[in-house]
Structure formats: structure tokens, C-alpha cells
Design a protein around this nucleic acid. Sequence first.
DNA 1: ACCGTAACGGACGCCCCCGTCCGCTTGGGT
DNA 2: ACCCAAGCGGACGGGGGCGTCCGTTACGGT
Lengths: 215, 215
Amino acid sequence: MRVVADPFPHTLRSDARDNRERILDAARALFSADGLDVPMREVARRAGVGPATLYRRFPTKQMLVAEAFADQLHECRAIVDEGCADPDPWRGLCLVIERICELHARDRGFTQAFLSTYPGVKDVAAGREYTVKAVAELARRAKEAGRLRSDFVLDDLILVLMANKGIHATSTVGQVKASRRFAGLVIQAFEACPRHAPLPPPARLTSAPAHDLSR
Amino acid sequence: MRVVADPFPHTLRSDARDNRERILDAARALFSADGLDVPMREVARRAGVGPATLYRRFPTKQMLVAEAFADQLHECRAIVDEGCADPDPWRGLCLVIERICELHARDRGFTQAFLSTYPGVKDVAAGREYTVKAVAELARRAKEAGRLRSDFVLDDLILVLMANKGIHATSTVGQVKASRRFAGLVIQAFEACPRHAPLPPPARLTSAPAHDLSR
DNA sequence: ACCGTAACGGACGCCCCCGTCCGCTTGGGT
DNA sequence: ACCCAAGCGGACGGGGGCGTCCGTTACGGT
């Protein structure tokens, strides 16, 4: 098995480049709708190519996943950047939570990829690192402004992401609606409020053996 | 394939009854730890019986699941009953949320069974019905007492349960800690508070007729 | 102690997924 | 127009889960 993804898509023959795109389109569609557990062959079928072609271009599922979710990863960064740019850090944080939840609600596969530390998908891992770091800073500012409860920890955000992943509806629109409601609830739980009793102790989730948080 | 579960375990021969118990023990252990996706053969292996014996006693996975989770279902009812018996409906509701979340955190398989409407597992379905109805009444009283926010909907509880299912940690203790933290957050989001902004619209998650809490 | 039968479990055939090989097709440079 | 290598996809062997059949074992009533 080749272990390095084809680094030069532009040197491919025209038909090969076409197929590569069709494969990525199929992968995006299937991963988004059904999650990452879709068989490779299903992707190939949908793309209208043979299994060998798929494996030639993307020797491992991880490579296909990484490539397929480049867009979402970019969008993810954009959301975080936008949130960080907001002069009101609390409003920025709320926006990030809402948008990220919606992003994950729309795209089942991305959630799995984002949370799973799919071994070897360094792009996704790096994207998550970036996101986490940026949000940490945002949270710090929101706390300083007195809008975010002081006993909030970053792991709570992971908690929320994982929880959001657990929400399933029959349709995408239902899913988004549910996620939106959920995000609304969570945000109000995060908001500093004198009436709030202290929370149970925070849970450590990030130090996990990094293999699979997704299932 | 036989379609009816052996209704007379007490008429079984002694060795068969033993095996039946060993199968159920194995199923409980595996389902709790790893969820319902454990292969039937794995259960058989763990129970120290052949696959045929397992299938003879439990022709379908649903039957095995239903039987294996009878305990948890009972505990579930007990929790709900205890919550309903509390003179303070809000405290009762909090207790139910906390305990149910913990129950589900300890037992992965039960969560799946409880939420999945595993086709044909009528016992579990009935248990869920009972739970939902009882909690609905509890929520109505908590709202009346002014402690539960007025825009709370029963589907929010399903939402929370599904969300709780999404939370995963590497160890059972970590899992329970995380769920506890999560339940704490959720409860504070549910509590009536003048500072709270209205939530996004509720999401319809159950196909069942909407139990009307509005009154 | 004996024997009929309930109960057992190894082995089978089926299906689906995986990753690879190899003979055929086709793009694109000359 | 020709050619050949890049590219293709059908087909293969391996592995694992599924549900069932049937020859063997051992319970328990007499």
C-alpha cells in the first residue's frame, strides 16, 4: 500500500484528474450524509469508478477524509476567526458555538473527523488545534468581561461538541433545528449568572489517548 | 427463525437454564461496555457456549437486548418514580436528569436500546413510554412551580439524552464525571431565570404525538 | 442403570467489505 | 496516424459476521 497521497494532482492525466474530482464529490456527499463509516466501494460506485481507481488516488481512507473535509476545515477556521474578531468576546463566543454546532449538524462525517483524531489526518488535527487555541483565548476574554461563567473550562466545549454529535434527527433540517436549540441551551448554561449554583467538577476529555473520541 | 422468545425459562433443563443465565450475563457485560454493536458470536464466546445455543435461546438480537436490559429499565422506572415522589417537582426533575444521565453514562448499550426504538423490543419501548409520560407530568408541575423555564418542551429532554449519548470518555469513571458535568450544565439551562433570553424554537424529535406541556 | 430426548456446539454456506493484481483502454506527445 | 505509458476496472483471495443444520453429549425420569 502506498502511504503518501498523490502530492501532485496537477500532473495527472486529464481523465485521472476528472475522476479524482468525482471521487471527492462523492466522498463529500456520502460522508456528510452518512458519516465516515461509508464503505470505500460505495464512494467508488457513486463516483462511477472502479475500486482500484479510488485506492490508487487515495490509498487510505484517512487521506480521502482529509481531502474531502478541507472545505469544512476552512469554514471552521473562518467561523472562529470571525468570532475572535468580534469586539464583544461573549457575543463572539456565542457565535462560534452556534455556528460550529450548525456546521457539525449539517455534516455528520465532519463531526467524526473533527473529533476522532483519525490517525494520520494531520490536517484535521492541526485545524482542531488551531480552533481550540483560538477559542481558548476568546473564552479567556469573555470570562474577563464577566459574561462567561468563571468555572467554565475549555473541556466544556469539547463536551458540547461531543454532545452535539449525539443529536440525531431524521432530516438535515430537523438536525439543524435540534442543534440550534441545543446550542441555545448550552449558551445560557455558560452565561455568567449570580443565580447559578457551582457546576460539578469539570471532566478531562482532551488528554485522551487521542485515538478515537468519535464513537 | 423462531420469532417468539422462549416464554418458559423455568421449564428448561438445568444445563440449559444455566447457559441462558451465562448468556445474559455476558450480554449485559458486553452491551454495557461496548454498546449494542457487539457481534452475537462475541456474546456466545464470552458466555462459553456455541453460537447455536445462543440463537436457540434468543433467536433475534432484539430479544437478547430486551431481556438483558430488563434491570436497567426497572432502575429507570425507579428513578422516575422517585423523582415524581419528591414534593419539590423541580428538585425531582433535577434528580431524574442527573440519575438518568449517569445511568446512560455507565451503560452504553442501554442508551442505544432506550433511544433507538430497536424494532420489536416492545418492553424497552413501553419502558420509554412510561418514563416519558411520568417526566412530562413532573415537568408540568415544575413549570407550575415557576422553577422550570416556561419554554421548556419535553423534546428537550430527548435532546439531552441524545446529547448525553454523544459524550464519550476512555474510562467509565471519566464518562460518568463528564455526564455529571453535562447534566449540571443542562439543569442550569433549564432553570427559569429572568435573565434568560428566549430559546431557539424547539425541535421535534419524537414521532410520537407531542405530549402537551403547555398548559 | 438405562434410555429417550432436550440441549449442545462445530462446521457450513451466505453475504459484504477489504486491498491488490493484471489485462485492456485511452490520453496526449511526436 | 502512431505509439506507449498512464490510467482504468473487473476479478480475486482473505477475513469476519450472519443464521442454520446435524451428529454428539448428557440430563433426568423410570
